[in-house]
Design a protein around this nucleic acid. Structure first.
Lengths: 361, 361
DNA sequence: GATGTTTTTGGAAGCGTTTCTATAGTAAAC
DNA sequence: GTTTACTATAGAAACGCTTCCAAAAACATC
């Protein structure tokens, strides 16, 4: 025997058939006499035998591997905090269950090429991370019959994909609600990247909540952003040069809110005294800034965890009915939104409110 | 034919043998008559055939997959910026070369279990990300004969591992040098996590440079940190309560430098007027803070890229001789280190200096 | 038309497992 | 002493592909 020991080597050394060795090593030793089991086990141990997972996958017709696919749009994983958190959750669920992870980061937009890469028999199922509008990942139906769960994009139903996401709509509604309850009526909004469904959902929730309260929306206070900090800074510059200013601005995510804040500092506009600003996502680095951004926190780790769970459930039951699961957010009240008038702040019923100390009210 | 089409189906449809189909689909059509090649190609296309990569791996005895292993110490990938950047580089090199990535995040410290998981025949080689002292990943030699490259930890030679890392020593020496050239002689240091080799290297380089300039090191100004921002904050509290203060502090990384800065702000100690502070790493979120931290930038992406390159080289040539490669850093001069005296600042010869505008001098 | 050469194609043996099914051997039941 | 019923083990096919080697076909040479 040269090279790595195979099952055959183990069988030979234990003086039994390959079948026997295989069965015993798979934990079916109750089928055999005690001493046989022992012989096999120790032979395997002495040889340092480890089953070849490729051969096993071929024979079992399942690979015990899940593909995690990043949208080509954000192929560089760096700074894609969303992907990290979700990935962590996915790993946390899968690792103890002896699933492996194949990380796939396509660098083309050609759906055929992308799916050829994804679905080549090496994975049992796939988690699609944050597909944006027009993403090749969404062509799933045409190219693959792999069980799939999309994560981080609440897609229209026609995509027939199982989904797990944060509840953008409810959370933004709750945030807007809360800002309104602080007495603000002149509220601006910085929109997210137009290719992300979340951007539209967040904007819609903002508008709906404003309207529900009979507050007029001033379109000149609705600014286009792209979820990047720079776009928040630009929005701030644009907004602050207007003669008439809102008393509060809600950004579709924390990165833009921080960009906005940064610019306010530079222009010496005081936050929250002159203008209040709220974010969305509770970004890690925004927390570190000590800017005490009022925002909505989401458990993205949980999203990943549940997505993995949903996927494994699909695999095990064969039930490929698309499901949808939304994780509620938590309002985190810090210091960047002030009372507009002396008005008792009543907690909104739609979301848990977390004050800075961490106590839930 | 039911299920996914196999090579056999393609061969049948094209009216040829499996061998022929295989050869042609692997691009060896020059071996065949033009029309044969065409028949096979279109049969494959019509059936939507995609080679099963598991079967292929088994037959070829190579998987075209690289394992990327995170140290169990930082199994949660989130906020492990180092891992992200490196991973990006690895992906960038491997993806176009049709290698797949298996992401492995062991959750135990038992080397046997860890390596059983890593080396089960499903990968051709492995990139070990930032193994810390005592990490099971370092037991490589005892458990695996897989080609391996360690990244992000400059290990002692006895580990016999190929390595790619940033040049901690040279970069910290250059930074220290520069701070000294700004006229500082009373310089403190915040150490990194004691289980990371980098922490010791950075500290050694600091001490060596100080000594080389004949500057005494005051041990009460050398504080223990752990690379986390909180530890920087704690160090600041400890340091600032001393009666005698250094005029500058160098932190072993940016996270701690920022924690330090934060605390200075809170205690209303002005930086850099009262005390200068330099970081190391040029962390993304520190950049965003608008704190203009003077630091050393490293191309971690490059580290990952080169590691992947080195690994593939080992695979292709079979040359398993441990190699070592260090990437130089770039001093980034921003605003947190001031001149201690009116002294002309001379660029150090040991590193490129990047001033804030981006121009290299 | 026999022989040699080159070009095309196919047979068959793997790769290392799993798993279905078959076969001894032994014990209990009649 | 035959049938029934297990128990313990092994044979062999299959998974889908690659690849070495041989066979067949086509063509050239004498």
């Amino acid at each position: 025997m040269r090279g790595k020991p195979t099952l055959r080597d183990v069988a030979e050394r234990a003086g039994c058939s390959i079948t026997t060795a295989s069965n015993i090593l798979q934990g079916r030793s109750h089928l055999y006499r005690e001493d046989m089991a022992q012989r096999v086990l120790s032979a395997a141990h002495e040889l340092g035998y480890r089953a070849n997972s490729v051969a096993r996958s071929l024979a079992r017709r399942r690979t015990a591997t899940i593909g995690v696919v990043l949208d080509p749009q954000h192929a560089r994983i760096t700074h894609n905090v969303y992907a990290h958190d979700v990935l962590d959750g996915v790993l946390a669920y899968l690792e103890p269950r002896d699933y492996d992870i194949r990380l796939i980061t396509p660098r083309t937009n050609d759906p055929a090429a992308v799916w050829r890469r994804i679905d080549n028999g090496s994975i049992d199922g796939v988690v699609l991370i944050a597909p944006v509008m027009g993403s090749p990942l969404l062509e799933w139906q045409h190219y693959s019959s792999l069980p799939a769960v999309a994560v981080g994009s609440t897609l229209p139903d026609e995509y027939l994909l199982s989904q797990v996401d944060i509840d953008n709509d409810a959370a933004m509604a709750a945030l807007t609600e809360w800002v309104i309850q602080q007495g603000h009526r002149a509220i601006g909004f910085i929109k997210g990247h137009p290719l992300h469904w979340s951007a539209h959902q967040r904007e819609r929730a903002f508008r709906r909540t404003m309207t529900r309260h009979g507050i007029p929306i001033r379109e000149e206070w609705i600014l286009q952003g792209d979820y990047g900090p720079e776009s928040g800074a630009i929005a701030a510059t644009q907004l602050l040069k207007q003669k008439d200013l809102p008393t509060a601005v809600i950004a579709a995510n924390d990165d833009m809110a921080v960009g906005f804040l940064q610019t306010c500092r530079e222009l010496e506009v005081s936050v929250p005294e002159t203008i209040s600003i709220a974010g969305f996502d509770d970004a890690y680095w925004a927390q570190r800034m000590g800017m005490h951004l009022t925002t909505v926190e989401h458990d993205r780790y949980q999203v990943g965890y549940l997505a993995a769970q949903m996927l494994l459930h699909q695999l095990e039951t064969g039930d490929s009915h698309p499901k949808r699961m939304l994780i509620p957010g938590t309002l985190v009240v810090r210091r960047t939104v002030a009372l507009a008038h002396a008005l008792a702040s009543v907690p909104t019923p739609n979301a848990t409110i977390l004050t800075e100390g961490g106590s839930r009210q």
